[in-house]
Design a protein around this nucleic acid. Structure first.
Lengths: 99, 99
DNA sequence: TTAGAATATGAAAATATTGTCATATATTTG
DNA sequence: CAAATATATGACAATATTTTCATATTCTAA
């Protein structure tokens, strides 16, 4: 009798992985790991990214539960909501590319 | 003076993350974490996936250095090449979805 | 040597992601 | 209030990923 795996838990994991699997989004995650919170412009400057594109990525990660934001005057500060995402970044950087 | 981040390391990390960020591919990775090596058919059965689709995913992950394969008679056995990918899976499963 | 099983391949359709641009909204300051 | 700054939005084009289907290849066994 064949044991069939339950794909549901992998869908959840894939959802999170896909959300961060992008160089600019990973840079943002690292930035917010090292800086309790940052404004959109600070992020743009540090990762050298165009405002609108960075904004899209920020909103995307916020929607998916990775980030959170709060307005402080004219600025909007983003910070990590899913803190565990830190480990992920470290973890993938230990992966050796065997090419 | 603004410190600009180096996107290169994030490109590498994103490459690996993207390669596994898919439910079926994650299932395959877990399977091969628990089973030194498996044939394509064994994998198809366990994850309840169509042969051709599973094959595409296997070849994709092999190309990108995550898996390796070897023929044993009429079977082709796949196994993990990038072992560190184990940790990634565990790691992402610790991430809490704050919805 | 042919039939059947195991696996790969390639093209095409379906779908999703990414980046760009122009513009909108909110806030502060003069 | 008007101008300037900070951020978001939405449409669209460009690109990439995922699935499916039909078929090819490789191996084994009769």
């Amino acid at each position: 009798m064949i044991e069939v795996m339950d794909l549901e838990k992998f869908e959840k994991a894939a959802f999170i992985l896909k959300t961060v699997a992008h160089p600019m989004r990973l840079a943002i995650v690292e930035l917010l790991t090292n800086n309790e919170s940052l404004s959109v412009n600070e992020i743009c400057e540090k990762i050298n990214g165009e405002q609108s594109l960075v904004s899209h990525h920020l909103i995307n990660m916020k929607l998916k539960g990775i980030l959170q934001s709060s307005r402080e005057g004219q600025f909007i500060h983003y910070s990590l909501k899913m803190k565990e995402i830190n480990n992920l970044l470290e973890c993938v950087q230990n992966c050796t590319c065997h090419f």
